[in-house]
Write a protein that binds this DNA or RNA. Structure first.
Length: 522
DNA sequence: GTGCAGTGTCATCGA
DNA sequence: CGTCGATGACACTGC
């Protein structure tokens, strides 16, 4: 630092602020960085927990390949019982301090609700004591776990759903912590922010203790939904969502690009058709694209209101936290996931350039499939697209479809056909390009061959000329006149006529009437 | 940030 | 005149 001070005093540009060289300052920054890092890790951990919980709520329908919510339990187990037990456990542990030793208590718990293995039970992943989790318990995770798994699992398994969410705390510490934190939890988790999920309150309590919030009204509607607020799974279920709270949402949002749309829709292209009786409409392309681009907002609503099969990626893209806060977050999908989605969406109808049906349905529906489902089209998109005209018309006549459905079906067929046509067109174009390239290659090869042949012929011609010249000289040298003298090559030359006769022609003579000799059969 | 390739869609044309 | 396939053009997306 002395050196720095000296240099600084000498007004030397250090290339950095002077504080950079202050070790205290650097330490502070380091601590700050460390703290931020910890917070980030904490946040990531919470997100992972949420994802895990969400996935746990879904099960893959092997028949359709769709992710669907887990069916409600066969036995009418009371919702919110388990969280209540958590609370009771908390209280129980408090009381247990007086009446029962901790080990005894654990033993009783494990006897009543046996854990998978004792080894697992001793690992931090399977904490036996719910009190351990409570201080920094993730309410969203708990909501999800409670609303699904707890319906048919033992409390011990419920505890297992909290696994790994916290650093392990010694039991005794946990007890102490619980005693301090439990009251706070009661207010925070059952308060407005979390809709009383963690500490379920009876319906009456719920309605009376809240402040008339929208969620609370919903919760008061049905006891079965008491524990579901922002992450109401049943609102996402295929059947219930259509029947329940949003019966006319389809009419508000659906808009077909075939011109059947709500009043005044800018996307209407068929002014003759405005609103149709059934109150079902479809999304326009632009709207659908917007939903695709905003999975966290519009698409989730879309999935909900149209009773679509909701998929993990979409489901998770709808950030529960944003729902809690009421602020839609532009949470982007992970690039990989997005890529997968695109691939799925595009690969769905792929079999490009062929009319083969897709071999296996993907989880994700194409937009036309979504539209068809939204308008309850009674046949598949594949049928709509690939049936022959007669069969298609017959199919249309068999079903009483309203105008919107007919328009959508026609649009789907047109788009599907055109998609295949475009794929075929591009394939042909590519084939043409490849064919032309091949033709170009073969033409180049032929050109090279001809050039080579020309070269050989030139060479051969040259040799023949040389041979001819030799022969000429030989013949010329053998010629004699009447006196037996040889002819001068400067005065005479040999020429061959078209009929094959060879003549001895004087070179310089203007007139060759007397000089011309006829040499036959040379 | 830009260019490119792939794809879906629409408009249009001709059969 | 409606349907259908072909194709250019455009928009969008991912690399």
């Amino acid at each position: 630092m002395d050196l720095i001070d000296i240099l600084w005093n000498q007004d030397i540009d250090l290339g950095a602020r002077r504080e950079v060289f202050d070790i205290n300052h650097r330490q502070k920054e380091h601590e700050l960085l460390k703290q931020r890092k910890l917070e980030e890790e904490k946040r990531l951990h919470l997100m992972r927990e949420q994802e895990k919980a969400l996935l746990a709520q879904l099960q893959l329908d092997e028949e359709t390949g769709e992710y669907i919510p887990r069916p409600p339990p066969s036995t009418p187990l009371q919702l919110g019982v388990t969280p209540l037990e958590v609370t009771q456990n908390g209280d129980f542990t408090q009381e247990a301090g007086d009446s029962m030793s901790f080990d005894e208590e654990v033993e009783q718990l494990t006897t009543t609700y046996p854990l998978p293995t004792s080894a697992e039970a001793q690992t931090p992943s399977y904490p036996n004591y719910p009190t351990v989790q409570t201080p920094i318990f993730n309410p969203l995770t708990s909501i999800n776990n409670v609303t699904t798994n707890n319906l048919n699992v033992s409390p011990a398994e419920l505890m297992n759903t909290f696994d790994g969410s916290l650093p392990t705390v010694a039991p005794s510490d946990a007890f102490r912590q619980m005693k301090v934190d439990a009251p706070q939890l009661d207010t925070s988790f059952s308060g407005e922010g979390f809709g009383g999920v963690f500490y379920p309150i009876t319906e009456q309590d719920e309605c009376s203790s809240r402040h008339g919030q929208e969620e609370n009204e919903r919760m008061c509607d049905s006891p079965s939904k008491a524990a579901f607020t922002h992450m109401d799974l049943y609102s996402l279920s295929p059947v219930d969502s259509m029947d329940r709270s949003k019966p006319n949402l389809t009419a508000e949002h659906l808009d077909s690009d075939s011109g059947v749309s709500t009043n005044g829709s800018p996307n209407a292209r068929s002014p003759g058709i405005s609103v149709y009786e059934s109150g079902s409409f479809s999304y326009s392309d632009s709207e659908m694209e917007e939903m695709d681009q905003n999975p966290g907002s519009a698409e989730s609503d879309y999935s909900e209101m149209f009773s679509l099969n909701f998929e993990p990626d979409h489901f998770m893209a709808s950030d529960p936290a944003s729902e809690v806060t009421g602020q839609p977050q532009q949470q982007e999908k992970k690039p990989k996931q997005r890529k997968l989605d695109i691939a799925e969406e595009r690969g769905l109808d792929d079999a490009p350039f062929t009319k083969d049906k897709p071999k296996k349905r993907s989880v994700r529906l194409t937009r036309d499939e979504q539209r068809a489902k939204a308008l309850s089209i009674p046949f598949t998109v594949d049928m709509i697209i690939n049936l022959p005209v007669d069969d298609f018309n017959e199919l249309m006549s068999k079903h009483q479809l309203n105008e919107a459905q007919l328009a959508l079906v026609r649009d789907i067929r047109r788009r599907g056909k055109n998609k295949v046509a475009a794929q075929n067109c591009r394939k042909r174009k590519m084939e043409n390009i490849v064919g032309l390239e091949g033709e170009l290659d073969s033409l180049k090869e032929e050109r090279d061959r001809l050039l080579n042949e020309k070269s050989k012929n030139t060479k051969s011609l040259k040799e023949m000329k040389q041979q001819l010249n030799s022969l000429y000289l030989e013949v010329f040298s053998m010629l004699r006149d009447e006196k037996g003298n040889s002819y001068s090559s400067s005065d005479y030359s040999l020429q061959q006529s078209t009929d094959g006769n060879v003549f001895l022609v004087p070179r310089i003579k203007k007139t060759f009437k007397s000089e011309k000799k006829h040499l036959s059969h040379l």
